Simulated assay, not measured.
Amino acid sequence: MEKVKSCGVICFTKTKKPSFLLMKRSYRYDLPKGHIEPGETELQCALRELFEETGITRKQVCLELDFRFRTIYYPRYRRFGGEKVEKSLVIFFGWVSEELEIVMTEHSSSEWVKWNPPHYFHNRIIDELLETVERKLMLER
């Protein structure tokens, strides 16, 4: 079975009423993330993909390097003839000062969602990630 790895960043606003960024494809929510390139670290990949898909620069995001969400799932990939692959996903956590304007490149739109847990997007990965973020934020209080 082929193995692929993607990395990304979930961005939260550091405001009185925080919100977080989700990307939208025509039929589902997604995160700013993408495939790791040869020689790239997970963090380098996550920051590159964040910039490529949103326009948010490394200088605009403050990462909490103690947060690293990882999951594995088994989607079918057109690149591999529709075969199932083992996909490893790593998501880092970052703060931005406010709801930044997003430069759309690969998604149909984006949305800054107000943080008001629990959140359910009927997307296993996003829902699990947000539950993990909620635990992290509760520990910091």
Results as ranks from 00 to 15, higher is better:
F51P: 12
F67S: 01
P117G: 05
C11E: 00
C45A: 00
R58I: 07
V4D: 08
S97F: 09
V103G: 10
G81S: 02
D30F: 09
D66I: 00
R58C: 11
E134G: 14
M138P: 09
E140S: 06
F69P: 03
N123V: 14
K24D: 11
L43E: 11
P117F: 03
K114F: 05
V85S: 12
L130D: 02
T132G: 13
P18G: 06
Y74R: 04
S110Y: 12
T57W: 00
V96F: 04
F93G: 02
Y27A: 12
G34E: 04
T54S: 10
V113L: 11
T54K: 10
K114Q: 02
K24Q: 11
L43V: 09
L31G: 04
C11I: 07
N116Y: 13
Y120L: 15
M1F: 14
V85I: 14
S108E: 10
F121M: 02
K14H: 13
V90G: 00
K33I: 08
L129C: 06
R28G: 01
Q44T: 08
E134A: 14
D66M: 02
L50T: 06
E37Q: 12
P18F: 10
T54M: 01
R70H: 12
E52W: 05
I102N: 09
H35L: 15
L139C: 10
E128N: 13
F80D: 01
N123R: 07
K33G: 09
F92L: 00
V4A: 12
F51E: 11
F121G: 02
H122G: 12
C11R: 08
P32A: 05
V133A: 04
E131S: 14
P38C: 04
E40F: 03
G82E: 01
E37T: 11
N116E: 12
H122R: 15
E53H: 07
T71V: 05
G39L: 03
K84R: 09
E99S: 14
H107D: 03
Y29S: 01
R70E: 12
E99P: 15
T54C: 06
L130S: 08
M104F: 12
S26Y: 08
V61T: 06
L21Q: 08
G81Q: 01
C62Q: 13
T41R: 02
V103Y: 09
E101I: 10
F121N: 00
T105R: 05
I102S: 04
Y73T: 13
M1S: 14
R58G: 13
F12W: 07
P118S: 07
K33F: 12
